[in-house]
């Protein structure tokens, strides 16, 4: 009974919403699905709302890094939105680093960051960005 994680296209972006407790299979499916959607829509940005995600363990941490990297390789910048404070504290205490993963608090901040990066890459001739 695996339900898939929704990916919604809006104003040239993709919005992924991860809610509650997700299984490894749902995350694997999301990785494949997101690749396909970026390729089909040519979206330059992905906002991933994790404000409803209740845990980030080492597996999820690897998945978030993988999602960030694979999006970048396909020409899109992924921004993680709204990590819960208890989850952030737990991630840090575990020694997980989530290296290269962009993080902001709200969807508006995420959109603003993507706009800034798009402008900057326009001026620099299209280099990829994965700043924190």
């Amino acid at each position: 009974m695996t339900t898939s994680i929704p990916i919604i296209a809006f104003s040239e972006l993709l919005l992924v919403t991860i809610q509650g407790d997700v299984s490894d299979e749902q995350l694997e499916a999301l990785r494949a699905e997101l690749c396909e959607r970026i390729q089909v829509t040519r979206a330059k940005g992905v906002l991933m709302d994790i404000s409803g995600l209740t845990l980030v363990d080492s597996y999820l941490s690897r998945t978030l890094v993988a999602l960030t990297t694979q999006s970048r390789l396909l020409g899109a910048t992924l921004v993680m939105v709204g990590m819960r404070p208890d989850v952030a504290l737990t991630v840090v205490d575990m020694g997980l680093r989530l290296e290269g993963v962009n993080a902001v608090a709200t969807l508006e901040q995420g959109q603003a960051l993507l706009r800034r990066l798009a402008l900057a890459s326009g001026q620099e001739g299209g280099h990829g960005h994965h700043n924190t």
Partner: peptide, 17 residues
């Protein structure tokens, strides 16, 4: 507390996986 829950649930996830 929420933090105690999340820490224990995360450790549970690691050990069971």
């Amino acid at each position: 507390t929420l933090l105690q829950q999340t820490k224990m649930v995360t450790a549970t996830s690691e050990m069971t996986r």
